[in-house]
Design a binder for these strands. Structure first.
Lengths: 363, 363
DNA sequence: TTTATTTACGCAACCGTTACCGGAAAACCG
DNA sequence: CGGTTTTCCGGTAACGGTTGCGTAAATAAA
């Protein structure tokens, strides 16, 4: 089956007019008489003419469309971010192509190559598997507008939007300490990711500021970034098999999927939260407030993040040349304290927690 | 900023060759000497030449790319479906463009128009707001391969893939009856949607087969399909304000978002499930097994659905003409019974429920 | 050596659209 | 009425790539 749309050429033949006349009539050019214009426009409407965007792109060398490189559709944080981007671009009259990498470098490279000659600009979140960024650098140096979001790439000087991962982890860890935890574990995604590194840094600083010495055994990274449940499972087992005096009483999970999987693990093995292990984790999953025990989370401003990044890319598309200065927008995550980490039921502690959230949001 | 990629023309100039020679060399044509081929191929690799897909599409009048029209990214069922589609097309060497309609007819029409001249085929799930399908019919009659999934359109004869909504609702209702419920309510999405109508039909049949007379007041539809919480809230309030003898003791929610919102409503208002109201609903949300009470669901085979629909579209793309016969693939949803609807804790009832699920899956 | 055939490449048309340029006819001016 | 200016429209090139065809040189056959 093949789709054969109406072309300007066909209409020109049908109307006994020149091709350029028809084109100009449709563009309401002053060089065309009102009578002819009406004839053309009416006919175009009648046959439901739609200009071929492929031909337009070929000529104009632009698309009014942008590409989004995303890790996984099937991830609430990602879909929320894309939602924010989509609505921003929709307002600006741009169309959006989304390609997922499933955390694979190979797919990422293919996706970027695919998009690079189809779109006017790129919104990229690096796959967790990716080490080298040469392919992006090349593209960027040839003039492709690129904005990084969430998982940024420091090697390439351009706009970027991300969450304050350091502070999110710092405050979450401080909260656990405030709840009386002294042996606090950290399970992250891929060790190679800047995001995870920052979250670890925040975690470490909070412990240091509280004068707690960290055990190496408390810190786990997941080679594949935690795409599969089994990765988190292994990390959890290692943590919980530690001798009694080293076994953690608090846990910060630094990745959405890891948080959900750690929660599942603890529920499946009937480990009580927060009594045996207080859990707080980065997560934008829905329903975390209705699971039992309800789940404390560090929640990123996902839609906002998408909107801001979209704005940066639009700015880049409109500027004639590479700007001299690049912005890095940093959004504060919200710390939402619920049952899974709330050991001290005192009002004061809850109050303190709430006030902290408000403080954070203002920034 | 503008991106200027290397063209075949530029390479021809650089190498002092004809344009067609370069093209043929890259295509390994027998008409080109080995020496020249090597020269061209090496140079192309050196300057990182990528053929312009826009130019290719313009000539070939095809893209090897397909379009997916989706209601909301930010909906687990949808993202699971898209996941299935994406992986099927990736294997077949097709690229995928996804556009969301946010349940708005206007956006849907724009999306379809946008995609129609960019892709070789379309995978469409009708927006809940949409009444007329003329825009799709036109396109279809001009030869655009279209496959409907989930929310199908009966007016247009083509392949389609959907869940057995009737049986899903029938079995879910039967389960509630088996749990002792006699006043079973139904809250659907938009009344106009075939999906919702089928689910209601299944619900009605189950009640009829059990000899239960239905009250009109038990059945609610949501004009906007339940996109916003408030719609479900209003329906729930109406149900729960009914006089004691009419007030429902069981509820079937026939839409993902509605199920989540009904659950939220019941939790917020401290209405006990299943004692005061037994709840089961269509839902593909994650974490429904960890909320408390855990949520009984009719869960669709979302990824499978995506894969099957993708296969149908690929078949259509490969066939020369419109096939005479169209397939309608029907997938059985899984009925997963959990706390929110389980009044009788007897093993026998649980067993019965489980065996029913297995029976259903085999079909 | 002459002719036929192969080899290896370039020219030009085409896909659908826009933009520049050129020109016929009509309108205007003196 | 002749010349100039508008008005209105068509031809053509270009965007980047593929492909049928033509052709010069090299090779093979006679």
């Amino acid at each position: 089956m093949k789709f054969e749309p109406v072309t300007i050429k066909q209409m020109a033949r049908d109307l006994n007019l020149g091709i350029s006349t028809v084109s100009r009539a449709l563009h309401d050019s002053h060089e065309i008489s009102e009578a002819t214009k009406k004839r053309v426009v009416d006919y175009a409407r009648k046959v439901n003419y739609i200009p071929n965007p492929i031909a337009l792109s070929l000529r104009a060398k632009r698309n009014r469309s942008i590409g989004i490189v995303i890790s996984q559709f099937n991830n609430p944080f990602c879909s929320q971010v894309v939602n924010g981007m989509e609505s921003a671009f929709y307002k600006a009259g741009y169309q959006v192509s989304i390609v997922q990498t499933s955390e694979s470098t190979e797919k990422e490279m293919k996706a970027i190559q695919y998009l690079s000659s189809r779109v006017d600009g790129l919104l990229v979140s690096i796959s967790s598997e990716t080490k080298s960024t040469e392919h992006l650098k090349d593209l960027y140096e040839k003039g492709m507008p690129i904005v990084f979001y969430d998982r940024i790439c420091r090697d390439i000087p351009t706009h970027m939007t991300l969450s304050d991962n350091y502070r999110g982890a710092y405050e979450a860890t401080r909260h656990l300490i405030g709840q009386g935890c002294r042996k606090i574990a950290f399970v992250g995604g891929a060790a190679t990711q800047p995001i995870v590194q920052e979250r670890r840094a925040g975690y470490l600083s909070a412990l240091e500021d509280a004068g707690i010495t960290v055990e190496d055994k408390w810190i786990h990274f997941l080679p594949k970034g935690g795409v599969h449940y089994v990765e988190t499972e292994v990390a959890m087992e290692r943590l919980l098999r530690l001798p009694r005096d080293k076994r953690p009483d608090g846990l910060l999970t630094a990745w959405d999927k890891v948080t959900a999987d750690a929660y599942k693990y603890l529920r499946r093995h009937n480990i009580r939260m927060p009594e045996e292990l207080a859990l707080i984790g980065f997560s934008n999953f829905p329903l975390t407030d209705y699971v039992s025990p309800s789940l404390s989370v560090v929640q990123q401003q996902s839609e906002k993040l998408g909107e801001v990044a979209a704005g940066q890319l639009l700015a880049l598309l409109q500027s004639k040349r590479k700007p001299l200065k690049y912005q890095t927008e940093v959004l504060m995550p919200e710390i939402i304290i619920r049952e899974s980490s709330l050991k001290l039921k005192s009002k004061t502690e809850e109050q303190r927690a709430v006030s902290k959230i408000k403080g954070a949001k203002k920034r």
